[in-house]
Amino acid sequence: MHMADALINPAVGGTMWLVTAGLIAYCARKVKQTMNDRLVPMMGVLGAFIFAAMMINFSIPGTGSSGHLGGGLILTILLGPYAAFLVISSVLVVQAFFFADGGLLALGCNIFNLGFFPAFIAYPFIYRVIARDEYGTLRAWIAAIVAAVVGLQLGAFGVVLETKASGISELPFSAFVLLMQPIHLAIGIVEGLATAAVVAFVAHARPEALFPAQAVVEPRNSMRPVLIGLLIATVIVGGAASWFASTHPDGLEWSIAKVSGKEEVSGTEDNLHKGLGQLQEKTAFLPDYGFKSTETEAAPAEQTAAEPEQWPTISAGTSVSGIVGGLITLGLTVLIGFALKARRAGV
């Protein structure tokens, strides 16, 4: 499931961007260290293969529906975690740009959700542990299914957390979880079956094909930096989210208040903030920003503490002017667009 830009705030999106960029840099270095020249073209071509494989469906036994390969797990089995993470990132970049699947701000989230979990959690800790070095056996099938399910469950949970931390969707946490996790259980089983079927075929038809590509060192010995990175990322995300929540009335706090019925979330407040508690309780359910613009909004970090009383109150007048102005602005932008175009065409 790809997250869209429209549902995350810059703090969450930016943090996940940083985390993902760090992971990409780390994986790129690891890939370089393998000194396996043929890995780079292999990565690119297998990324292209994933797109092609997505066109081909198989029928899911016992149901009327069909499914296809997702990509994360099979790429990791074929290329090892580091190279696979880079390839998954590229697949998502192409999807974001060419299919508008996901978005630029959400790209970090999407890469993390769909790349990190299969490559660095599901593969080393589940697939390798269950399947060991077997291919095409019952063990390998079970390994692929369990790994795919766990990878996607974690990814789906990531989507929920990131969306909630952004506080743009009103969907309650529990409802969102109940919506996402079962769907991804089904998707995970399908992905596991597809992965196992393809790997089993290759293991049978040309077993040697499975080994040379997987030249990257085993991840288990060198998992520590990745885990440390993850820990740091968690702290940063938590920090950013709570900062956003405490300075931004529509942040995490607001949505959690919405879900739990409680206005206060302990630990996210600072002293400055406390004095505003009363006001914030109200604003959380009230228009907070409404239509009117305030200069203070441009700098969310300083705004709430300093001049809380400037938050706008709503009047019909501002609403009307907002709507009228919005429509006219839209019209103007279209006109300017046409003018530019006409000028270009005339040149």
């Binding site: 073209p41 292999m42 071509v45 297998l46 081909i56 469906n57 079956l193 075929f201 038809a205 040309r206």
Partner: peptide, 28 residues
Amino acid sequence: PSSLRLRVYGSLVGHLLLRSMARADRVY
């Protein structure tokens, strides 16, 4: 033709995968 049995699927996509890998080798 719209969707395949899993075994057929495995060999079809598996073939495609092998071809892709052979392609990558030739590019290299």
